[in-house]
Design a binder for these strands. Structure first.
Length: 306
RNA sequence: GGCGCCCUAGCUCAGUUGGUAGAGCAACGGACUGAAAAUCCGUGUGUCCCCAGUUCAAUUCUGGGGGGCGCCA
C-alpha cells in the first residue's frame, strides 16, 4: 500500500502540508496525533480548523470522548483498517501527526496482548501510594527479572504495563514482544518530516500559544469542567496549566501561559528525539525556498515508482 | 536620612562552624513495543555583587562601596 506520512515536532505546519498533498494527489487525511483524536479539545491541540477540514476529508479526529480508553494498538488497528479501505478506493492516505509511538505501531506493527485492565492498575496505584514507586520494580523483579533488568525503577508507566501483562497472561512482556503474535507492519510509506531550527521552532511555539489564547483557549478549558479528571489524568499539555490557573487558582494567568509555552517546547524537543533516529524520514525546513517544490518532486517520484 | 534583611548556575533558592559550592525548574543529549502531549535516564567552572583588610587560605570573618527589599523618618 502506498501512503505518505507527514511527521515532525509540534507547530511546524504539518496540517497545512497534509492538506496540500491530499489535494494534489486526491488523498485524504488520517490523523496520527494522540490528542486530536479526542472531542472537546480543539484549540489547545491545534486541531485542523473547520475550514481546513472542509477542504479534504479528515479521518480519526474527534472520535473519542475524553473518558474513553485508547491505545497505540487500537490506533494502529483503526488506522490500518481505514487506510486499507481508502486504498481500495484508490484514495491516497496522508497520515499526519506527531505521535511517534502511534506512527511506529502503524508502520512497524505492535505485539498483541489482552486489553489493559483498569482495575488491576488501580490496585497498583494503591501499592504505589502505600509503599512508593520503587515497590513496583521490586514486584516486577520477582516475576520477570529480564524486564525488570531493563526498566528503570521509577519508570512507572512501563512498570505498570509489564506487571499488568504478567498478571493477565502469565508470560512476561519481553517474551510477548519477542515471540508473541503481532499486528503486522504496513506498506512502504514515504516519510516526510518538517522542522525548523531550534530557535525558530521555539519562537513559533510561543507565538502559537498566544494565538490560542486569542482564539478562546480559556473558554474551551472552561467548558471542560465535566472532564477535568480525565484531562488531568492524560496530562494534556497546556490544558493542565490552564486548569491549575482557572479551576485550582494555583498560579496567576501570565504564569500559566508561560508554562503552556514551556511545556509545548519541552514536548517538541522530545518529539525531535523520537523522530531523529528514524532514518527513513526526509527532512524539510519550510524557511528554505522551494521547499514545497522539493516535497512534491519527491512525492511524485514515490507515487510513480511504486 | 536612620535601622534591619538580602545579593551564590538562565530563574527560584540551599550551603560552606574559613580549605573556591548544590537542589528544583529551565537548557542540552538520550530512551521509548496496547496510557505516549505519557513515562523515564544522563549532562552543572558559576568573576558565590565589587574593592580593601585579617589569614597559609575568604564565597564564608571585618571595613568600605554598589544594587534590591522592608520598616521608621
Amino acid at each position: 500500500m502506498n501512503f505518505i506520512i507527514v511527521c515532525g515536532p509540534t507547530c511546524t505546519g504539518k496540517t497545512g502540508l497534509g492538506i496540500k498533498l491530499a489535494r494534489r494527489y486526491g488523498g485524504e487525511i488520517v490523523n496520527a496525533d494522540s490528542r486530536q483524536i479526542y472531542k472537546h479539545t480543539t484549540i489547545g491541540t491545534a486541531k485542523p480548523t473547520p475550514e481546513e477540514m472542509a477542504k479534504v476529508k479528515h479521518h480519526l479526529f474527534d472520535i473519542l470522548e475524553l473518558n474513553e480508553m485508547f491505545s497505540a494498538y487500537q490506533y494502529a488497528r483503526m488506522a490500518r483498517e481505514l487506510m486499507t479501505e481508502l486504498s481500495a478506493k484508490d484514495i491516497l492516505p496522508i497520515v499526519v501527526g506527531g505521535t511517534g509511538l502511534y506512527l511506529k505501531a502503524l508502520t512497524e506493527g505492535i505485539f498483541k496482548s489482552p486489553q489493559p485492565d483498569p482495575e488491576y492498575r488501580k490496585r497498583l496505584d494503591d501499592i504505589v501510594e502505600k509503599f512508593g514507586i520503587e515497590k513496583l520494580h521490586d514486584m516486577l523483579a520477582l516475576v520477570d527479572e529480564e524486564t525488570a533488568g531493563r526498566l528503570k525503577p521509577r519508570d512507572t508507566a512501563r512498570l505498570y504495563r509489564a506487571l499488568e501483562i504478567h498478571h493477565q497472561t502469565g508470560s512476561t512482556i519481553t517474551e510477548l514482544q519477542r515471540d508473541g503474535e503481532y499486528l503486522p507492519s504496513l506498506g512502504n510509506p514515504l516519510w516526510l518530516g518538517i522542522t525548523f531550527n531550534r530557535k525558530e521552532l521555539y519562537e513559533r511555539i510561543n507565538k502559537r500559544v498566544d494565538t490560542m489564547i486569542d482564539m478562546g483557549f480559556e473558554a474551551e478549558v472552561k467548558k471542560l469542567e465535566p472532564y477535568l479528571g480525565f484531562v488531568r489524568k492524560r496530562k494534556m499539555i497546556g490544558y493542565t496549566d490552564m486548569i491549575a490557573c482557572m479551576f485550582d487558582n494555583d498560579i496567576p494567568r501570565d504564569e500559566a501561559i508561560s508554562k503552556v509555552k514551556q511545556h509545548h517546547r519541552n514536548y517538541a524537543k522530545r518529539q525531535l528525539t523520537w523522530f531523529r533516529k528514524n532514518d527513513r524520514i526526509n527532512w524539510f525546513d519550510p524557511t528554505i525556498k522551494d521547499f514545497e517544490k522539493e516535497i512534491y518532486e519527491l512525492s511524485d517520484n514515490y507515487l510513480k515508482s511504486t
